[in-house]
Design a protein around this nucleic acid. Sequence first.
DNA 1: GTGAAAGCGCTAACAC
DNA 2: GTGTTAGCGCTTTCAC
Lengths: 355, 355
Amino acid sequence: MAKQPPPTKRPAKRPTSFEVAELAGVSRSTVSLVLNGVPKANISQATQQRVLEAARALGYVPSAAGRTLASGRTRTLGLLICHAEHLRVDAFIPQALFGLNQVSQRYGFKVIVEAVEEPRPGAYLELVRAKQVDGLVVLNPRRGDAQLSELAREGFPLVIMGASEIPEVCTVSSRDNTLGARRAVTHLIALGHTRIAHISYGGLEYRGAEERFEGYRRALEAAGLPFEGALVREGDYSAESGFSAMASLLEAGAGFTALFASNDTVALGAMAALRERGLRIPEDVAVVGYDDIPLAAFAAPPLTTVRSPALEHGRLAGEMLVSLIRGERPERTQVDFELELVVRASCGAASPPRR
Amino acid sequence: MAKQPPPTKRPAKRPTSFEVAELAGVSRSTVSLVLNGVPKANISQATQQRVLEAARALGYVPSAAGRTLASGRTRTLGLLICHAEHLRVDAFIPQALFGLNQVSQRYGFKVIVEAVEEPRPGAYLELVRAKQVDGLVVLNPRRGDAQLSELAREGFPLVIMGASEIPEVCTVSSRDNTLGARRAVTHLIALGHTRIAHISYGGLEYRGAEERFEGYRRALEAAGLPFEGALVREGDYSAESGFSAMASLLEAGAGFTALFASNDTVALGAMAALRERGLRIPEDVAVVGYDDIPLAAFAAPPLTTVRSPALEHGRLAGEMLVSLIRGERPERTQVDFELELVVRASCGAASPPRR
DNA sequence: GTGAAAGCGCTAACAC
DNA sequence: GTGTTAGCGCTTTCAC
């Protein structure tokens, strides 16, 4: 098996800092100081030049492992996705990752993405314990994750994205999911709907899903409308789940004129189910989603939704995490994005079809 | 700034292999051998037990940097996204990443995701040169990327996802994009369409976009239909770009009855533009996309598309890369997925609305 | 301003 | 079967 033709392939012999030092006629420490731009080690311009040139000439790039071992820093962040399926089916993560990636690059960090398949809590701990990342962004942790609290208690740089129940930990989320959901449902109520169904994006063990559900209930309550369990279904981030949840609602014949889905992808699936049965949106059933994924504006009809700026989430989580890693106190530790209800045609209000 | 209360936070003192060795009453090498499960170093059952227990008792996890430095292996893969925007707006990447993540975990690898923002070619080289990854999956490289060929020539483990122009390099793609596109367009022609517009997902510097465009041309040619530049627009992975490309096509008044978009997201954007102008799909304009993203089946109407199994792409790329890293010759070096045209309602053929 | 020296935590030959 | 011995490539404190 392992029979490769070695002639054509050089084993990619990497130069070491030693060789750079030799070529520049200085010591390895000087090379290190120059390349890391250590300010207080006043290296003369001339020496700096020589070192930089030597490095370039040799195509020298410091070994990540070497510097990690010596410095204790990895210059790597981890993005932990607690529910792997979320990655596959929803549009929130890629956007957040995009934002995180932007920030990381700016500060010279790499990003390790880890999606946890099985509900083995604390799988991600390995990344931390192996000292492979300097900090961790955790997306939508399960509630009561003891390992996570433990990590936070140890002072490990940690940012939670999505609803969190650990108060001391930096969190970036949308201003109280409950509030966003309330706004969405209140909007439907204002339009005259009194029987409003709900499909969640996950079980109540996910804080965010629970909060949005809670917002739904509160909005009903505030309007004096009764809550009916028969109008509620549980989805799982996917359009499929939205489709079948809606199918189930329709079969149950519960009778409703509006839907609040706590995730756009789920909403789009539900809309497909409505269309398949010849029901019109919004005339027969008005629909409101949550997240404002890029495709929401292009749905048929364009989806009214609560904007939860995924990209900004990623960026901000990155900023916070980098601050924490540097031992600074981040400017803000609990960031809530202002939640805007983006009104489009799916709930019937007259509005321009695109954003 | 850096004033943290040290009392509550232990600095997370990690145990080393030395401490495990001490506790187990063996040497560090034995610890290493046991924990790495080196088979040919017959360690007695009893010793193994002792070491394992000691490790567990201490909560020992080997330092990634240490073992990398000593072994030369990082147990980390890189996923390189050549066009960062692709990550933000399209649904292909998260699925591929999902697949890659599955395989990586199975083989004990982590995944570093790097999305290149600026068209600075070779930015990714740093990952390789810093010896931070053992291998690289490169998604949709730009054509004529010299750094990439160089890397391949050096024998660095490399797998290209998407169309590649470097023959010696392992590639996982969909069976000749050209063929898939031909099938799509031929299907439209068979339905009686003679004026078929095309919106690409990227410029011709992207091999995949070019191939799909090529397939479009060939299909027309094979049917004796003329090619018209006026019916072609360039998109960029996003629904927005599909929307405006379609708007532009309609304004140009080129007159067409069908659209082939080389990417589903673009197709969905184009469909929104059609609907906005009151055009019916497929009666006025039939639409075929490419990729079969999860939402394609839930579009209005459900989108006919060429299935390009993103998740499998990721899985397979992972398998190949791991093989290469291990110095094996992967079972297959050029994997082309069978391209299936998934016929749904958007092109008018009678068909069940969901997959 | 620059160099010397001491590790960082681990693996892998090679002895025993 | 297990321990000894070298490094892997870098950073960083402290002299010079």
